[in-house]
């Protein structure tokens, strides 16, 4: 029950939204978040959107990792 999954918001109706999790459609409450619109990705936990996922930060993390210095090549597997 700790699990929270990334879901894409499909439509918003007041404090409720429909979201897609790998193609499955789930009802999601928006009580805990603000300014959510269709197309946003949110983390869903026990039926509540916990937070909007930041695309900018995700790209930044991946960019940093792409540039990661692995260290001495010789010791690599």
């Amino acid at each position: 029950m700790c699990l929270s999954i990334p879901a894409k918001i499909l439509s918003v109706d007041g404090l409720m939204a429909k979201a897609s999790v790998n193609g499955a459609i789930v009802n999601t409450s928006l009580h805990l978040v603000e300014d959510i619109k269709p197309g946003d990705y949110v983390l869903v936990h026990t039926g509540f959107a916990l937070q909007k996922i930041s695309e900018e930060e995700a790209m930044e993390t991946l960019k940093l990792l792409a540039e990661l210095d692995q260290g001495n090549e010789n010791t690599m597997l």
Binding site: P6, L62, L68, Q70, M76
Partner: peptide, 21 residues
């Protein structure tokens, strides 16, 4: 999609190597 990108095999290998180092 915030899933596949963070399961990338090449990245996994790279970080694993950095940890070993």
């Amino acid at each position: 999609k915030y899933m596949d990108e963070f399961r990338d095999a090449a990245l996994v290998k790279k970080i694993t190597a950095a940890i070993k180092n």
